[in-house]
């Protein structure tokens, strides 16, 4: 186990260095000139050149990377071109809103998704099952922006129950998290249903029932626990998506999260911000994957790493 852990940690470090090189090179190879994006269209070429020099973009690529690595080791991810402030600070300011939205959406996904999955599985073939399946299909097929705007119009404009947008208080969290959770909830519901149905047909479930266990205990203690394993993989990956992939939801709800920040940063060629976000999120991804792999061993004693 210890050797396995060390090997995984070493692999993770190599992955992260690889990611940093890839991000660094790709950003500088794609067309687009940061100084031009900062200056208005009518700025003279000399001003563009001067600003690019100030931004350190006239050094050879490997020199730029070396400077970058040295600073990162010191915890300095460079100055954001757009915000004219430390990139790490610009990114960290977006963390609370990002986490709040991701956690809320994740909670919805797990609670609603798993419940819906269990309900449709144990009531297979009944109207409950059909209704739940319709909901799940809708959740997976409604485009995010459409759902978001409809929710804003209904609950923000017509009913005035909830704020239309912005970040402040619990009420403002409802519409964005529902919008963001729609897809993963549907995914989790369908996955739960499928794997639960498969497990409910297994021998040991029959044994459980035969020895007189209550249906509730059979489903929740024995079947659901085993159905959780494929779910965990999906949920682990979804956390990453919820953290970084909420761009559309963030745009619709003017939510000051990281998704919108990274898209704008790519758009305006704000290299330090893009680098910071991608490297941080790669780190989070790697760590979560590691944790999920370790969790398997806890949930299923048959899985052992050597």
């Amino acid at each position: 186990m210890r050797a396995y852990l060390l090997r995984r940690l070493w692999q993770s470090a190599v992955t992260l260095v690889g990611v940093s090189i890839l991000v660094f090179v790709i950003l500088r190879v794609v067309p687009g000139d940061p100084a031009k994006m900062l200056l208005p269209e009518g700025a003279p070429p000399s001003a563009v050149e001067e600003l690019n020099r100030h931004l350190g973009l006239r050094e050879p690529l490997w020199v730029q990377y070396e400077i970058f690595l040295r600073s990162v080791v010191r915890g300095d991810f460079g100055q954001s071109f757009q915000y004219r402030a430390p990139a790490l600070r610009v990114v960290i300011e977006r963390v609370p809103a990002t986490i709040a939205l991701a956690v809320a959406a994740m909670a919805l996904t797990v609670v609603v998704g798993v419940s819906l999955g269990v309900l449709t599985a144990v009531r297979q073939g009944t109207p409950w099952d059909y209704g739940g399946t319709v909901l799940a299909v809708l959740g997976q097929s409604l485009p995010n922006f459409w759902l978001g705007i409809m929710l804003v119009l209904l609950f923000g404009v017509t009913l005035r129950w909830l704020p239309t947008s912005g970040f402040g208080g619990w009420a403002s969290l409802v519409l964005p998290s529902v919008t963001l959770a729609a897809f993963p909830t549907a995914l989790v519901a369908r996955l739960t249903r499928a794997s639960l149905l498969e497990i409910l047909g297994q021998e040991y479930i029959r044994t459980g029932r035969a020895k007189g266990l209550g249906e509730r205990r059979v489903v929740l203690r024995h079947a659901l626990r085993n159905a959780t394993i494929p779910l965990l993989t999906v949920l682990g990956l979804q956390i990453g998506t919820l953290l970084g992939g909420a761009v559309i939801t963030e745009s619709i709800f003017a939510w000051p999260g990281m998704g919108k920040l990274v898209v704008d940063a790519i758009f305006f060629r704000d290299f330090p911000v893009v680098q910071t976000i991608l490297i941080l999120s790669a780190t989070i991804f790697v760590v979560i994957n590691l944790l999920v792999d370790l969790l398997y061993t806890v949930l299923d004693p048959r899985i052992r790493y050597g």
Binding site: I149, V152, V157, R160, S165, G166, A254, K260
Partner: peptide, 17 residues
């Protein structure tokens, strides 16, 4: 407030925010 999406800007105005 900074609301990038026009539909949301319009909704916030219509909602009286």
């Amino acid at each position: 407030r900074f609301i990038p999406e026009l539909s949301t800007r319009a909704a916030a105005l219509r909602a009286g925010e």
